[in-house]
Amino acid sequence: MLRIFRIIALVEGVTTIALFLVAMPLKYWAGNPMLVPPVGMTHGVAWLAYLAAMIACLPGKGFSGWEWARTFIAALFPFGTFLNDPLIRGKQTARPVV
Rank of each mutant, 00 (worst) to 15 (best):
G13C: 05
A49L: 03
F63R: 03
L26V: 11
L21I: 00
G60S: 07
R6S: 02
P25S: 07
M41E: 12
G65N: 06
W68G: 13
T93A: 12
L83M: 13
L51Y: 06
P37A: 05
T81L: 10
R3H: 06
A69F: 09
R3Y: 06
V98Q: 11
W29I: 14
V39L: 15
I4P: 12
L21D: 00
K27S: 10
I88L: 15
E12I: 04
F72C: 05
K61G: 08
C57H: 01
K27T: 12
A56P: 00
A69P: 04
A46L: 03
T42E: 08
E12Q: 12
A46Q: 03
I73H: 04
M41L: 12
S64R: 05
L19S: 07
W29S: 13
M1C: 07
M24H: 08
G31E: 07
A53L: 04
L26F: 15
A23R: 03
W29V: 14
T81P: 06
D85M: 13
V36W: 08
I8K: 00
L35S: 09
W66V: 15
A9W: 01
A53K: 02
I55E: 09
R89L: 14
W47P: 03
G60F: 06
V39D: 14
A56V: 02
L58N: 03
T93W: 12
T42H: 08
A75K: 11
G90E: 14
R89V: 13
A53H: 03
A75I: 10
Q92N: 15
P33I: 08
R70F: 12
G90N: 14
A46M: 02
L19R: 05
A56Y: 05
T42W: 10
E67P: 13
G62N: 00
L48F: 11
I7V: 13
L51I: 10
A30R: 03
L19W: 07
T15W: 04
G90S: 15
R70S: 11
E12A: 11
I7A: 12
R70L: 14
P25R: 05
V14G: 01
M34P: 13
V97A: 09
N84G: 07
F5P: 03
A23S: 09
A30G: 00
A56N: 00
L83P: 05
G31P: 09
N32R: 04
L19C: 03
V14Y: 03
I7M: 07
W66R: 15
A52S: 07
